[in-house]
Nucleic acid binder design. Structure first.
Lengths: 132, 132
DNA sequence: ACACTTTTTTAGAACCATTATAAAGTAGAT
DNA sequence: ATCTACTTTATAATGGTTCTAAAAAAGTGT
């Protein structure tokens, strides 16, 4: 299994559940956005066995901490995650309530001129809201 | 009262509660960021009478819909609002969990090159995460 | 001022995403 | 195989937000 080493290298034991969640998240041609609820449904459809909701939460947070997933900053009652961890941005279609990737090259270079003493910039995230 | 007309023009009846919330939100030298919980505490401190939490939620949402407040897109268990409704952005200090305004002039012009068919850009919001 | 309609406020219940708990199961090391 | 630390699990608890339905207030017409 190709994910065993990846997990072990991160200090995460390669359990059956984690490996299966890896398959659902990363064995896809395209990256995608999801909520925990989306992911739970996807897991139920794709796998024969059940994975507890608590495990899904734990695993997603563990993967996020290790940098295999990113949270998308957006106001919603649910938290959105992205399997695309490269530096990029998002459209948010307010009507359809859907996220669309915006590659870095689709957004001109962003230059933050203001500096805060003793703080470093960790990330710059752009959310472009769309209406009809 | 200076807020009576403002409310009436928006189709909101100028009730005692709404006027008092206006005072707390807009009778300040500087704009500020807040959660509903922050606002409820501020109201409790500044006013003698109690305003129901449901009313605070209703009012904040009404004001947001009318454009007197803005939601700040950030992942948190609470929703953050901003009394500064001008076009601007935010730093988010991850350690202190504090928001800092970033004026539009502090961020170079942002040019979204990608277009989505039949959709217009409603807003462009930048969140700059800070670490030590 | 009064009667009438519509909007607003309110306390409390309900909702629901997320987190905590604690017991059972599993992985890895010796 | 045994031991220890980590992981999974079902379920309970938490907590921000929304809903409900009754009481209060605001607006309108007379």
């Amino acid at each position: 299994m190709k994910y065993i080493e990846k997990l072990r290298n991160s200090g995460l034991r390669p359990t059956k559940q984690r490996l299966q969640i890896c398959e659902v998240l990363f064995d896809t041609e395209k990256t995608f956005h999801f909520t925990i609820n989306d992911l739970a449904n996807k897991i139920k459809k794709q796998l024969n066995n059940k994975i507890s909701l608590a495990t899904i939460y734990n695993t997603v947070h563990a993967f996020e901490k290790k940098g295999y997933l990113k949270q998308i900053p957006i106001n919603s009652n649910q938290t959105y995650f992205d399997t695309n961890v490269s530096d990029h941005h998002h459209f948010y279609d307010l009507k359809e309530e859907k996220l669309i990737d915006l590659e870095n090259s689709d957004v001109g270079p962003i230059n933050i001129l203001k500096k805060i003493n003793g703080k470093k910039i960790k990330s710059v995230e752009v959310l472009v809201k769309l209406e009809d």
